[in-house]
Design a binder for these strands. Structure first.
Lengths: 153, 153
DNA sequence: TGACAAAATAAGAATTATTCCTATTAAATA
DNA sequence: TATTTAATAGGAATAATTCTTATTTTGTCA
């Protein structure tokens, strides 16, 4: 069962690479295999440590670069975090964010429906929530224009 | 009008500092004044460049440390971003995040209501949205326990 | 199958962002 | 105005990432 699902995922991975004109290298396979085992949100360093156990002489740079490549073709996501460089927001009124995944800009927007979102009961019981925000990700107007036909290759 | 609002904000700033037993230094004043002028999400480096124009020999460390201090007492917010160290998420199913502002951990959770949030029309018209997520921030169960009486001081 | 062109890799240097360290200075209080 | 305690400047140290270059490998096609 486990291996069947795993094989399906590997097939999906290989197909995606071919579609995107990415070469299917043993390094990329090894990294992908570790990724589908990951339950949390690993850093590049954490992935490097895991992968090198199977792939003795893989370099950090390859792991890091490959993770970034995977995120570009939609195999994995880069999650938002308290980032570096840290960005400070002097606007303490409730508002929401649009992140451009290309240029990295964050745009504020207001939305009443989002402001009124309820915190789920199971979350309230476990965590002390002091702020909520809807984060939308995608491509901003400038970046969309710039690469309008980029996936027609 | 402008100066009145600005004075109110400065008064609020001074009161907040006193409440929190923080000294009101010229450096902190200068940094706060720049902050309330900021419309975007400046980095520490950007703030340093702005502030040093008024405050010739201020150090980067002071700016950075002060911004962090301000965020701790709720004067400003640290916004989520594509962070460093980057965190990669192999789970591409829709889910949401709880960020602990103390330990930095990000916890996944599922919520149907959140999944069904509509993208506002004005956003759709301007940006190409490919992902949405609700991000809750606060203190996780472990960190809440650890500092249960920390604000009684 | 073998050769070729383009892409990917390893290794380490370089860069960027941040935090730490410590002597000095300044704010708050009496 | 003297004292105590926190805050600062400046620079060293660290952490995370990206860049550079020579080498290797993949995918393709004869």
């Amino acid at each position: 069962m486990q291996s069947k699902t795993s094989n399906d995922l590997l097939k999906f991975f290989i197909d995606t690479c071919k579609q995107q004109n990415l070469k299917v290298t043993p390094q990329r396979m090894a990294i992908y295999k570790e990724l589908i085992k990951s339950k949390n949100h690993p850093s590049a360093e954490a992935m490097f440590q895991k992968v090198r156990r199977q792939f003795h002489n893989i370099s950090f740079d390859t792991v890091n670069r490959t993770l970034f490549t995977f995120s570009e073709i939609g195999l994995i996501d880069i999650v938002e975090g308290h980032g570096r460089p840290r960005r400070f927001d002097p606007d303490m009124n409730m508002h929401h964010h649009f992140h451009c995944i290309k240029c990295g800009n964050i745009t504020d927007f207001r939305n009443d429906a989002y402001d009124n979102l309820e915190i789920p009961e199971n979350i309230k019981q476990k965590f002390m929530v002091i702020r909520k925000r809807v984060v939308l990700k995608g491509s901003c107007d400038k970046c969309s224009k710039r690469s309008e036909f980029s996936n027609a290759s």
